[in-house]
């Protein structure tokens, strides 16, 4: 999927009815790619470590970044708080990507707050055999600059499992950058909630009400369709059949400053239901963080 910015603009302009409603036109905010720092991948001993790492490596290769250092925690977080505190203190100036289990993540976040890190994104990723049948990604990104959701959606769409992604932005784009922008991909219909703190919802294979139900979004009035468009920035040049690898790819790419599509919203969500979506056979869950130490 390689689409350039111009074709996106065409898609945007196709939404004539939208424009007629007096809503400002959709456009990308211009953003220069971030400079990558020394990047460290900390693997906390989850069963997802290996697959995540291979995704991370693929992202590094795509972005021509050769400096990724991998640290494998021998002991878990719960028994290794001193080790982690030591690592955090020795890593000033680095950008960390961490992969931990749920319990480790809770304690890790506390340790990270104590040393004053800057958090760029957090994600909980879950595929369960004792829960919903779709794969869930619950992301919090501090700003659009560090968003992961769109790129992740583009990647996991290549696989056969159904998924839901929610992404909350702690900070909305500043007013001067508030031209309306949206993510888009073939097969997705997109909507924007009216009112303050707008939500963008992108559904594939399901209706908006179904998508909202899957995503746990309360029924709110006034969803406005966003004209269909295709984004080039989050194009998929590399594929994997495994969703964990895709998470590793998307998160690492975002940590390395990949140019993603900013969306003018407070939060966004992606729901995908395929006609023959299969239930995952193997339970897997982990938590990811991207932070500057």
């Amino acid at each position: 999927m390689e689409v350039d910015r111009r074709s996106l603009m065409k898609g945007v302009l196709a939404g004539g009815a939208f424009l007629a409603l007096g809503v400002p036109s959709w456009a990308f905010a211009d953003r220069s790619p971030q400079k990558s720092k020394q990047c460290v991948l900390l693997l906390g001993g989850t069963s997802a470590d290996g697959l995540f790492k291979s995704g991370a490596r693929a992202a590094c290769a795509d972005m021509a970044y050769e400096g990724l250092r991998t640290v494998q925690l021998k002991e878990g977080v719960l028994t290794g708080t001193d080790t982690i505190t030591g690592l955090l203190n020795q890593s000033r100036g680095a950008r960390w990507i961490t992969v931990l289990d749920d319990a480790g993540a809770v304690i890790f976040l506390e340790l990270a707050r104590s040393v004053g890190v800057r958090m760029l994104s957090m994600g909980v990723h879950a595929c369960s055999t004792d829960g919903p049948s779709y794969i869930r990604h619950d992301l919090t990104s501090t700003s659009q600059d560090h968003s992961v959701g769109g790129l992740l959606a583009s990647h996991v769409l290549q696989q056969s499992e159904d998924f839901c992604i929610t992404e909350h932005f702690l900070r909305e784009p500043p007013a001067e950058e508030r031209a309306l922008t949206s993510w888009g991909a073939p097969g997705f219909s997109s909507h924007r909630s009216a009112g303050p703190d707008p939500i963008h919802v992108h559904c594939s294979g399901c209706s908006l009400p179904d998508g909202r139900r899957l995503l746990g979004l309360e029924a709110t009035e006034g969803w406005i369709p966003i004209p269909p468009q295709v984004c080039t920035r989050e194009s998929v040049t590399w594929r994997s059949e495994n969703w964990v690898v895709s998470v590793g790819y998307a998160i690492t790419a975002s940590a390395l400053g990949v140019d993603t599509v900013p969306e003018s919203c407070a939060s966004r969500a992606f729901a995908h239901q395929s006609r023959n979506g299969r239930r995952a056979q193997r339970a897997e869950r982990f938590v990811s963080f991207v932070m500057d130490i």
Partner: peptide, 22 residues
């Protein structure tokens, strides 16, 4: 006051949106 600095203060484990406690 920056989002990146406040994010570690924001996460709770409660069944309400983190936004309610930001």
């Amino acid at each position: 006051v920056k989002a990146e600095q406040l994010a570690p203060y924001t996460k709770t484990m409660m069944p309400v949106p983190d936004a309610d406690h930001t």
